[in-house]
Design a protein around this nucleic acid. Sequence first.
DNA 1: ACTGTACCCTGTAGGC
DNA 2: TGCCTACAGGGTACAG
Length: 293
Amino acid sequence: MPELPEVEIVRRGLEPVMLGQRLIGVDQRRADLRFPFPEDFPARLMGRTIASVSRRAKYLVITLCDGTVLIMHLGMSGRFTIEHGTQTIAFGDYVYNTGADAKHDHVVFTLANGARIVYNDPRRFGFMVLSTVGEWTAHPLFADLGVEPLGNELSATYLARKAQGKRSDLKSFLLDQRVVAGLGNIYVSEALHQAALSPRRVAGSLSRADGAPTLRAERLVPEIRKVLRAAIDAGGSSLKDYRQTDGSSGGFQNEFAVYGRDGEPCQRPGCTGTIHRTVQAQRATYACGNCQR
DNA sequence: ACTGTACCCTGTAGGC
DNA sequence: TGCCTACAGGGTACAG
């Protein structure tokens, strides 16, 4: 599920509950997810107080007051559920069971305020890693990451420089986390449609021979930002049998212009084309063959 | 160095 | 009802 907007929504859900709280319980229920858990994972977290809950790309980055950094990735199907008193709020993936699903509850964090934060992940493509305040940005997971798409570093000039000489297609280029960190399969399709660029266009066409950005690159950057901001404002996207639990999250899927709309007419004003689903690099791509060039 | 493919895992939807 | 296949928002490991 989670691309940058969804992870950001999860972060915003966890932060007010976790910030300043001491971890009084870490229940790790299996040896591995996508990767093995770190050695002595619970013991290295227990008793510490949470100093910050932040995000980098699709990673949640939780800093503890002793300098430990807990890095979490939700993979395809990870979600967090906060159980606090009688209230239960879920953040993240709702593709699968929306009810009790203890079978895939892999980690339970208990806070001093009594809240229980349950990590559930049926496909187990998520993972958790430990690092330190001084070292985590140099961790192999982060060392080669590209720029944050909502930060100042993303520019047409940056994209053009990264794209120069690249012969792969534009969609694969944008999915590459070393280029723009946090984009995923949905929002790449959406941004390319908004920018009227074909996902099959060669990535190098964002760059002129001298490495300067083309007009396509100039057009693409603001559309990437816009679609991500709009998704965050809408509380992220949720597919399939999503049900709202806190009344405020997860409606952007209703605003997709192309994703999941195979066979539907293009919504671009004046365009008479049809959205088609194709496959690139084993992933579904949705685009209008008429207005995206 | 690049580019493309196979693969990790479970659950769900749809065809028969 | 069951069986089978294809597909799902993630990233990595390898082969060429």
